[in-house]
């Protein structure tokens, strides 16, 4: 599914030569796998996941997605990949506060050019899956943290992505809600053979997945 060769990310700094957040990362993920990327805070997990999710570009190295080298893709090609190939779940949910649950969840379909009615119907089914159909018309600001993250999950799944990327999806949740979100992720992985890459600093959560990639100081730990 994905293969990274010698990925480097260097952030320019105001003084000095720049900060190397990723210092040559090689990873590969097979289709249908549920893996976790684990490591202490600040080690470069989010930087890596952003690159995997076409939100960011590597400074050096190659990133192959479904066999294509996408490391040199321009903004519009990356936007296309984001809306058609991957779903992204954020630690802080990143929902639009002015919109209702269903409107948030169906946004990716609208950016794919789907008609509102069709988008509504497809999104309703997904909200059903994450157990939120009763609150579809609610404002997202009225929801609890766990519910919000499930909206985030529904939104990530709306465009039927090839791969789900989750950056500390339970980082802002209590243990009960965390468990619920984790259950949903496992369920999605199992039932639709969805490839999932989850970033976490929590060893216990990481251990629940099929495979762990440990990162330290911008490098994969052997």
């Amino acid at each position: 599914m994905i293969k990274c060769l010698n990925l480097k990310k260097i952030y320019p700094l105001k003084a000095g030569a720049g900060y190397a957040a990723l210092q040559g990362v090689d990873i590969s993920v097979e289709k249908g796998e549920f893996i976790s990327i684990c490591g202490p805070s600040g080690c470069g997990k989010s930087t890596l996941l952003n690159i995997l999710g076409f939100l960011d570009t590597p400074s050096e190295g190659r990133y192959f997605f479904e066999g294509n080298d996408v490391s040199g893709f321009d903004d519009s090609k990356r936007a296309f990949l984001r809306r058609s190939k991957v779903g992204f779940v954020f630690q802080s949910f990143n929902l639009l506060p002015k919109l209702s649950v269903i409107e948030n969840a169906m946004l990716p379909l609208l950016y794919l050019g789907k008609k509102r009615k069709e988008a509504m119907e497809r999104t309703k089914a997904i909200l059903d899956k994450v157990g939120l159909s009763a609150k579809a018309e609610n404002d997202v600001m009225e929801l609890s943290g766990g519910e919000r993250q499930r909206v985030g999950l529904a939104r990530a799944l709306a465009n039927e992505p090839q791969m789900l990327l989750a950056d500390e999806p339970t980082g802002n949740l209590d243990s009960q809600n965390s468990a619920q979100v984790m259950d949903l992720l496992f369920d999605i992985n199992r039932s639709s053979k969805m490839t999932i890459v989850m970033v976490t600093h929590d060893n216990k959560l990481a251990q629940m997945t099929e495979r762990i990639i440990r990162i330290k100081d911008g490098k994969v730990e052997k």
Binding site: G53, A79, R83, F88, L107, Y111
Partner: peptide
């Protein structure tokens, strides 16, 4: 800005 970021992250292009 935040809203723009969110929209972009879920697939909105610059044109959108």
């Amino acid at each position: 800005i935040k809203e723009i970021g969110i929209r972009r992250s879920i697939g909105a292009g610059r044109k959108d």
